[in-house]
């Protein structure tokens, strides 16, 4: 009994979910109109060419067989070949993944680092001006389309003034030569430089949502009986905030983080489009627009995996803080 078992249980629970993700995506793609063959070969392929292509990609087999074959391939980590790029899907994904992960990690970090203190201060200064300002900002943050924030940021900070670049992300571990600078340090700087606007664009929504939750959670915890007891025993208010209330208040936040992943990935797609970033988001859009079956299903599966991993991490963090969880059934 305990954390190890809980972890394993959560991982096992994830498998059917992933299976479902693949299945849904696979069959949705199958429902797409259009013939991949004509896409590849042009409007009037010869019968021979068409047949050859079909055989090559196994398109002449019945649906259920293709589906099972696909599953079998997936288990072996073979996600097929991209029709559009003509390279293995896995390769394409590995190429684009780091960029998206960088963006996601960066925006989540931004969101957490800003929202927690903001939420706490807001709760402490409840109904005072600081609180009102913070709440207005948070409200605006959850109401603004993230891609519009991106556009406005570009207009203001990349076009009106040239403080930040308007496109692309640079990986911090890229080689200086590839980036066109002198040293590793310069690569790092350039990387951060490119990261700023997209991070704010993607992270604002999360930051706003988290601030609201942090505030209300903190308020709730500060009203709890055990906090009152701590006060009754003479504990200083700062200690109460820091120690007695803080941990408990983070619990809803952690839950929300897990749930936010799905919208964050969607947001990443939009942000990557706005900033012309070559990540998983733009990859999937290209794949869809070109009816690149294998690529679509493969990327969806991987994104689903990212989500599942994220949820497991948040669940584990929750269980780490709240000792009650491992002993009860996860709801």
């Amino acid at each position: 009994m305990g954390r190890a078992q809980y972890t394993i249980r959560r991982i096992l629970q994830a498998i059917p979910v992933l299976l479902g993700v693949v299945t849904i995506t696979y069959f949705l793609m199958e429902a797409m109109p259009g013939d991949p063959v004509s896409i590849m070969l042009g409007p009037s392929p010869s019968a021979q060419q068409a047949a050859a292509i079909r055989a090559k990609y196994g398109l002449d087999q019945p649906l259920w067989l293709r589906y099972l074959n696909y599953l079998w391939d997936v288990v072996q980590l073979d996600l097929g070949t991209s029709l559009y790029y003509e390279v293995p899907v896995t390769q394409k994904i590995l190429e684009r993944m780091p960029v998206t992960i960088l963006l996601l990690v960066s925006s989540f970090t931004f969101a957490i680092v800003t929202s927690v203190p903001l939420g706490i201060i807001s709760a402490q200064r409840r109904n005072k001006p600081t609180d009102h300002v913070a709440r207005v900002v948070a409200l605006l943050g959850v109401s603004t389309p993230s891609f519009w924030i991106g556009l406005v940021l570009i207009i203001l900070f990349a076009y009106q003034v040239s403080w930040f670049p308007a496109t692309k992300l640079v990986l911090p571990w890229a080689s200086p030569a590839a980036v066109g600078v002198d040293s590793r340090f310069d690569v790092l700087v350039t990387s951060l430089h490119h990261l700023v606007l997209p991070t704010i664009s993607l992270g604002t929504l999360q930051m706003a949502a988290l601030t609201r939750i942090e505030r209300s959670s903190m308020l709730e915890v500060l009203g709890e009986e055990y906090v009152k007891l701590a006060r009754a025993y003479g504990v200083k208010e700062t200690t109460i905030l820091r120690k007695h209330a803080f941990r408990n208040a983070q619990l809803p936040l952690i839950t929300l983080l897990g749930l936010q992943l799905t919208s964050a990935i969607g947001g990443a797609v939009l942000t990557e489009t706005v900033f012309s970033i070559n990540g998983m988001g733009t990859l999937i859009i290209t794949a869809i627009n070109n009816q690149d079956f294998a690529l679509v299903v493969g990327t969806t599966l991987v994104l689903g995996l990212v989500f599942v991993v994220g949820v497991i991490i948040t669940d584990l963090s929750y269980a780490y803080i709240d000792p009650r969880v491992t002993f009860e059934d996860a709801d």
């Binding site: 009986e225 055990y226 006060r231 009754a232 025993y233 003479g234 941990r247 408990n248 803080i321 709240d322």
Partner: peptide, 21 residues
């Protein structure tokens, strides 16, 4: 005073103890 000279015991033992510590 608080805790030192006068201590208090609340009604609900469930709620009076911080669950995460």
């Amino acid at each position: 005073v608080r805790g030192r000279e006068i201590a208090i015991v609340f009604q609900d033992p469930m709620e009076s103890l911080n669950p995460v510590f």
